[in-house]
Amino acid sequence: MPPVTLAALLRDSRQRLAKAGVDDPGFEARLIVEHFSDTTQTKAITHPDCQVEAQVTKQVAEAIERRFAGEPLYRILGYREFYGLKLTLSPETLEPRPDTETLVDLVLPEVQRIAGANGHCRILDLGTGTGAIALALLSVVPQAEAVGTDISDDALETARRNADINFVSERFTALKSNWFQNVDGQFDVIVSNPPYIPTAELETLPREVREHDPRVALDGGPDGVAPYRLIAAQAQERLTREGLIAVETGYDQKAAVAAIFADEGYAALKAARDLGGRDRAMLFAFRPES
């Protein structure tokens, strides 16, 4: 392929993505071109006529073909931004999404409070995936440390890599564990974005999710809330006396999840809605009957 200008590559990419029915072709074209050409939006504005190497043009064309085939943008790029962090993705990790930042926002003040009062805060992130939740908290609270569990070796390696590139690896431990199975010690805060899609609904999910996010990170059992039962039933011995649990939930699961935790002696302290106004995260404390 002969060299083309940066402006021409952006224009062609935007037009091709628009024809493919992409919701925001301008945004996606910019991210794809910037990623493979190692340029910035500023350079596109100040130096639109700079030539792009043929190899870059080929890589951009291949990326757009992958979008045509239904592969998510951030899977193609290999990373996604989350809570100000750049997180690499891998086949066995869920792609972190803005909705999960709601969970971080909900529990962050509690982590800061505990760290301020005690000089430290131990966090357990169940089903850590990319490490998104734990690493976001560690990036804001320097006195905190976290253990992230997962059953996938691929996910654990990805979480370790993300901890390293975001400069919190000394305070993050990736542990292979099926929920609490291999976890030792007690924690001030337990966080989780567990699978919460009912099994029967998995095939109705958007193609980008259904075909590219790992099923094990989506499937919440027949009613979608099986993981919450497990967490509520087993968390107490891993919590400090004043410990807290924060979980992400499906938009229609608030009442069901609250009831599950109430049955195990937990009180719902707070709930939060995502940017779309949907119920998305809940915070619990153990409050056994006297």
Rank of each mutant, 00 (worst) to 15 (best):
Q234W: 09
R215P: 01
D252I: 12
R241F: 15
L239D: 07
D252W: 07
D223E: 15
A255E: 14
E237Q: 14
A217Y: 01
T249I: 15
A255H: 14
Q253K: 07
L244A: 05
D219V: 05
T249W: 05
P214T: 06
R229S: 07
E237S: 11
R215Y: 00
A259T: 13
D252E: 13
A256F: 13
G250L: 07
E237R: 14
L239F: 13
A246E: 07
I231Q: 02
L230T: 15
P214E: 06
Q253H: 12
D223C: 09
A217P: 02
R238D: 01
G221A: 10
A232V: 00
A246M: 10
T240I: 03
D223L: 12
G221T: 09
P222Q: 14
R210C: 05
E211D: 14
G243N: 04
P227L: 04
E208C: 04
D223I: 12
Y228N: 04
H212N: 07
E242G: 08
R238F: 12
E248G: 11
L239T: 11
A226D: 14
Y251M: 14
E248A: 10
R207E: 14
P227W: 02
V209T: 00
D213S: 00
V257T: 10
R210H: 09
A259E: 15
L218S: 02
Y228D: 08
E237M: 10
A258M: 12
L230F: 15
R238C: 13
L239W: 10
E208S: 14
T240S: 08
G250M: 10
V216Y: 01
Q236P: 02
G243W: 00
E211M: 08
Q234I: 05
Q253P: 14
Y251E: 11
R229G: 10
L218A: 02
L218N: 00
A232N: 01
A256H: 13
R210T: 05
A256S: 13
E211C: 07
Y228V: 08
E242C: 09
P214G: 04
V225N: 07
P214S: 09
Q236I: 00
V257I: 12
A256D: 15
L239E: 10
